[in-house]
Amino acid sequence: MPFDAPQTTMIRWNGLSAKAWEKQLARASLAPCQQAYAFGEVIAAHGGEVVRAELVNEGETAGLCQIAVRKFPGFRLATAMMGPVWLREDLAEDTRAALIDELGRTLPIKGLHAFLLMPQGEGSGTEEKLRLRRVVSPYHTVLLELTQDEEALLAGADGKWRNRLRAAEKAGLTINLLGRRAEQYKWLLEAERRQQKRLGYRALSPLMVPAWQEKAGKDSVIGFEAKLGAERVAGMLLFRHGATATYHIGWASKSGREANAMNLLLWQSIRQLKKKGVTTLDLGGVDTDHAPGVARFKLGTGGRLISQSGTWLLRPRLR
């Protein structure tokens, strides 16, 4: 039985242009790159299907939800990647629940399908109110507010993190800006591919980077490399989307790790992002069980640890 929705709620499907979508998304306190219009365009360009929804309350767009659809024989799986994104933090719980329920009921997909949600925030009564079932445990990330000046950012970092940064500044590293052309960072994508294979973890395909840049623009990728003499010893790439940036790839050789190159690369990235007007840096997933070193590196910046409530299933429907 559908949730008892307020009559002021409705869903508008596929009605916004790229420009209008990004303008609305800029209202969000945190806009994940998976909800950027360009991210959906990359999926569509590689044969996927994408639908986009405006979640409307009292005539105002209160949320956005970009949904990727994967096709299987006789079945489709729709996933709201890190969504929906709420544009009004004061939205009542009943209204959020009503909008999510209507999102599932009006999803423009025919036949047998399942719909997965990955809402932001640590969870509240919305999922329970709708009797959703959690199928994947919560995701954790670190947010660093870049509206602070550099002195405040350094003061907020862990002492050991600052010490490693100072050591890197004295290690003889040469730092070069990357990003405006795919040829500049092709080597880093290959290093990331090898790293994923060696360590056995799954992440967005390195091929996503040039495809993202093609759709989102040259300034949507920012990165740096570190060299010791002529040798590349570390590299870092971030996605820029509106006033938010997301840490995407980081790699360092043994020499780079010994020189604390990643601390210096991240610090240079932070300074560059501030110049570009970025106000929030999403440092990406934190897993203290399987990648404790990476977790310590991200948490050491002094950023705020936040948890997403998990991935929730709206039960399969046949329409």
Rank of each mutant, 00 (worst) to 15 (best):
E145L: 06
L143C: 03
L189K: 11
K129G: 06
G200Y: 08
D101P: 03
L143K: 08
G104K: 08
Q184R: 13
A168I: 00
R180N: 05
E183M: 06
E190L: 04
W86Y: 05
S124L: 09
P138A: 06
G104E: 08
L99D: 06
L143R: 11
G159K: 14
R131C: 08
L165K: 11
L204K: 11
H113F: 05
Q120V: 00
A97Q: 05
R105A: 15
E102V: 08
V135S: 11
R166F: 05
K160A: 12
G104T: 06
E183G: 12
Y201F: 15
L91T: 05
R133Q: 14
V136T: 14
T79H: 12
E192P: 00
L144R: 03
E190N: 14
D90A: 14
R76G: 12
R166A: 09
V136D: 11
M82R: 15
A157H: 10
P138Y: 05
K170H: 11
L178T: 06
L107S: 10
A203F: 10
A78R: 02
E150M: 03
L77M: 07
E169V: 02
L188E: 10
T106R: 12
A97G: 15
G156Y: 01
A152M: 04
G123M: 00
A155C: 06
L132T: 04
I175S: 11
K170W: 04
P73Y: 07
A152Q: 08
H140Y: 15
V142Q: 01
R96P: 00
R180V: 06
G121K: 02
H140S: 12
T141Q: 04
I100P: 01
R105F: 06
L189Q: 13
H140P: 04
P73G: 09
N163P: 00
G125C: 09
P108V: 02
L132Q: 03
T126A: 09
M81D: 13
L204Q: 13
W86N: 04
R105H: 15
I175A: 07
K186W: 15
R96A: 08
E145C: 10
W86R: 03
D101E: 11
A203D: 14
L153T: 01
E145F: 07
K110Y: 10
G123H: 04
V85K: 01
G200W: 08
R134N: 07
S137M: 08
L116P: 01
L103D: 00
A168N: 05
L117K: 12
E150W: 03
A152E: 09
V142W: 03
G200A: 09
P108G: 10
T141S: 11
A182H: 14
L91E: 06
E145M: 03
A191V: 01
L143H: 15
R134A: 08
Y139V: 02
A182S: 14
W187P: 03
W187I: 04
P119T: 01
L173F: 05
R164N: 15
S137G: 10
A191F: 07
I109N: 09
S137R: 14
R88E: 13
G200I: 02
H113P: 02
G179N: 07
S124Y: 09
L165P: 01
A182C: 05
T126C: 12
R105V: 06
M81H: 09
A155I: 00
M118V: 03
A168G: 05
L143F: 10
A78E: 03
L130D: 10
R180G: 01
L144Y: 00
R96S: 10
T147N: 14
L87W: 02
